[in-house]
Amino acid sequence: MIRFVDATKVYSNGVIGLRNLTVRIEKGEFVFIIGASGSGKSTFLKLIMHEEVPTEGEVYVNGYSVHDMVQSEVPYLRRSLGVVFQDFRLLPNRTAYDNVAFAMQIVEATAREIRRQVPLALGLVGLSKKARAYPDQLSGGEQQRIVLARALVNNPAVLIADEPTGNLDPKTSIEIMNLLEEINQRGTTVVVATHEKSIVDTMKKRVITLERGELKSDVQKGSYFDEN
């Protein structure tokens, strides 16, 4: 599903993002990527999305070779991924419903598919009743649920979340995490980059720890301070 083989990313300004990282995430897994700022979490996610390409080594995602990819293929790689951001990134001038529908219009879904799938996605994140609300009429947690619905509506194989609870209070964070777990149980691979130890500790999932761009540890059912 996701495979990094000796992948190194050096940015043009000389900063090392990742150093010789080899890691493998199977289909259906739930994985936390943790580490301090500058540890390489973001670089890891950026390489998966082909926002950056590795300087050396190989990165495979959903059958695409990210390290060796023509630009015209990138949209198709991204369609196989759902992405959730810390800062939501919703379109402020569109309703919750339209924000989710937008993701389907982009992949040229039919109007019928959109009418069927969008309510399903909104129902999954528990926001059916707020479909007509605009983002600024919703709480942070609700906005992040819309983002989740948007990420899921095209049935991606992998869901990537970059600090999804970074802007949320602890209670809402737990709700979002439960939602991610539910999504994972439906078969979607979930990769979450975070630095919130309480969440990582309670969820007991696989934890990949990065430090200065290198793999520090990779533990099944780990916690934030596992030091195997």
């Binding site: 379109l91 937008f102 982009i106």
Partner: peptide, 15 residues
């Protein structure tokens, strides 16, 4: 911002 979101969701360049 909209363009960025479109890119993440996998919009074709032409779109």
């Amino acid at each position: 911002h909209q363009i960025e979101i479109m890119k993440y969701v996998g919009a074709l360049d032409s779109f």
